[in-house]
Amino acid sequence: MRITQGCFSFLPDLDDAQISAQVEYCLENEWAIGIEYTDDPHPRNTYWDMWGNPMFDLRDPKGVMMELDDCRKAHGDKYIRINAFDSTRGFETVRMSFIVNRPDTEPRLHMQRTDFEGRSQKYAWDVRG
């Protein structure tokens, strides 16, 4: 099963040239770039670990790609994503987020729905390796 989160999640994985093109688009829009990683890709897990600090003053995607390579070397067995932040309104808003690295074997998320009286439903999730 393939985890689908963020932009481009239903497409085949982006190669480095395509990632660099997306980063260049973000930088042209003056969005700051952040790199995050996790081993828990559950959709409700919004607290991924940050790799370094957000990159606010970059003008060339090569700097982001160097940081991404370093993150892949340290955490190549985890999910890694790139986030683009827009601070034009005085607070950081995520404008783009996409996964750039996946582990060799992705966990399977399983959802169990239980129906109750009066059309009530409850959902439970678990991760299956």
Rank of each mutant, 00 (worst) to 15 (best):
M50W: 11
D69C: 01
E30R: 15
D69N: 07
A21M: 06
N45H: 10
G63D: 14
N29R: 14
H42W: 06
D39Q: 09
N29A: 11
T38Q: 04
P41I: 01
R59F: 08
D40R: 10
Q22D: 07
E67Q: 14
D49W: 11
E36A: 13
P54W: 13
Y47G: 14
M66L: 13
E30G: 05
G34V: 00
M55C: 12
E28M: 10
P41T: 02
R72C: 05
D70K: 14
G52M: 02
C26F: 06
P43N: 01
M66P: 00
R44V: 02
D40Q: 14
W48V: 06
M66W: 06
C71W: 02
A32M: 09
D49R: 10
L68H: 05
L58N: 09
V64A: 10
P43E: 07
R44P: 01
E67P: 05
L68D: 01
W51H: 13
R72P: 03
T46W: 06
A74F: 03
N53W: 12
Y25G: 00
D57H: 14
M65N: 04
Y37V: 00
D49M: 13
G34Q: 13
E24V: 00
Y37H: 14
E36G: 02
W31Y: 14
A32E: 09
A21E: 13
P43I: 03
E36H: 13
T46A: 06
T46H: 07
G34N: 07
E67V: 00
L68I: 01
D57M: 08
R44M: 11
A32T: 08
D39P: 01
D60K: 11
Y25H: 13
L27R: 12
A32R: 08
K73A: 13
W51S: 08
P41A: 04
V64I: 10
